[in-house]
């Protein structure tokens, strides 16, 4: 490829990429702001996962019973508070 051919190929590439970049298209994606409710729903999934892990590890024999009950109570209280706020926001 000669220097001139290379230059012409480069100009054609520039035109093609320019058209692709600035081609008017109405279907672009947009996104609304994330709400606190959505944030809490994400956290709810994480807390459920933590509870599932705790139960599984207890069944696998990693926790003595008292430890398990203490940990489960703490996690359940945290989850209950979260669910209450979710319910409150959903009703509002």
């Amino acid at each position: 490829m000669t220097e001139t051919q290379g230059f012409i190929a480069g100009v054609m590439l520039a035109i093609a990429l320019g058209i692709y970049t600035f081609w008017p298209e109405n279907g672009f994606a947009s996104q609304r702001e994330k709400t606190r409710l959505e944030y809490l729903l994400e956290r709810k999934e994480q807390l459920y996962e933590n509870l599932r892990d705790l139960n599984f590890e207890y069944r696998a024999g990693k926790y003595p019973e008292e430890d398990f009950i203490t940990q489960r109570t703490l996690l359940e209280n945290e989850t209950a508070q979260l669910l209450a706020e979710i319910e409150h926001l959903q009703q509002a």
């Binding site: 290379g6 230059f7 480069g10 590439l13 990429l17 970049t21």
Partner: peptide
């Protein structure tokens, strides 16, 4: 190909700067 390669790199820089 050297001219094309150099030119492509300049185009890439301009597009990245626009980005």
């Amino acid at each position: 190909m050297a001219a094309f390669g150099s030119f492509a790199l300049l185009i890439a820089l301009a597009l990245a700067a626009y980005n």
